[in-house]
């Protein structure tokens, strides 16, 4: 702590960025907690339009959940490559993770479009409002994650990453895993448990 303003000797031994991401994810838990509670309260309240069990396509959603889960695996590979200072593999696995994430989001865009055509709009029923809000928030989180991954690849290639590379990759990895875990909870509560 003698020569720099911050960071190099931390009291906990965990770097600031990583600890900061942990704190942020703690906060995110409550955000999704609130949204999930809202959905659970309202999922059976349908005064018009389809009910949850009538439009969900469980096989498709299972597959897309699996794709998202796989992206967690590739993220782990990216982090481990970053720790080994293997730039090529880091970039590669980050790209693969981003692509799997994009596939998932593509699936969600499809699902939303299909539901809308079948008669479930954002203002159709309380179920509709809370379903689109919950899954939409998750989708936005995945999208932000993809943008972070792609930017990270870009930054890694074009310019030097400020700070330790592996730390930054790991931090984004934390975020990505969190988003995946939230999806597992949403998938279970929203799709699998009947009203």
């Amino acid at each position: 702590m003698t020569d720099t303003a911050h960071g190099h000797a931390s009291s906990t031994g965990i770097s600031n960025v990583k600890l900061g991401m942990w704190a942020f994810l703690g906060s995110e838990c409550l955000l999704f907690g609130g949204l999930i509670s809202t959905y659970m309260l309202y999922r059976g309240r349908v005064t018009g339009g389809p009910r949850p069990s009538q439009i969900f396509d469980i096989p498709f959603t299972s597959v897309s959940s699996f794709v998202l889960l796989m992206s967690s695996l590739t993220m782990v590979l990216a982090v481990s490559a970053a720790h080994k200072d293997d730039d090529r593999k880091t970039n590669l696995w980050l790209t693969v993770t981003a692509l799997l994430g994009a596939t998932f989001v593509g699936g969600q865009v499809y699902e939303f479009t299909a539901f809308y055509k079948e008669g479930l709009g954002f203002s159709t029923s309380l179920f509709g409002s809370s379903f689109y809000t919950l899954t939409g928030f998750h989708g936005v989180h995945v999208t932000v994650g993809i943008i972070m991954l792609m930017s990270l690849v870009g930054i890694l290639k074009r310019s030097s990453v400020p700070g330790k590379k592996a730390e930054v990759v790991e931090m984004i990895g934390l975020y990505w895993h969190f988003v995946d875990i939230v999806w597992i909870i949403i998938f279970t509560l929203v799709y699998l448990i009947p009203v």
Binding site: T38, L41, Y42, R45, V46, T47, F122, S123, S125, L126, G128, S129, S130, T133
Partner: peptide, 14 residues
């Protein structure tokens, strides 16, 4: 702003 029904009692909101 977007027509959601979260507090619209007529739609069954609480």
């Amino acid at each position: 702003n977007f027509g959601a029904q979260f507090f619209d009692v007529a739609a069954g909101a609480d």
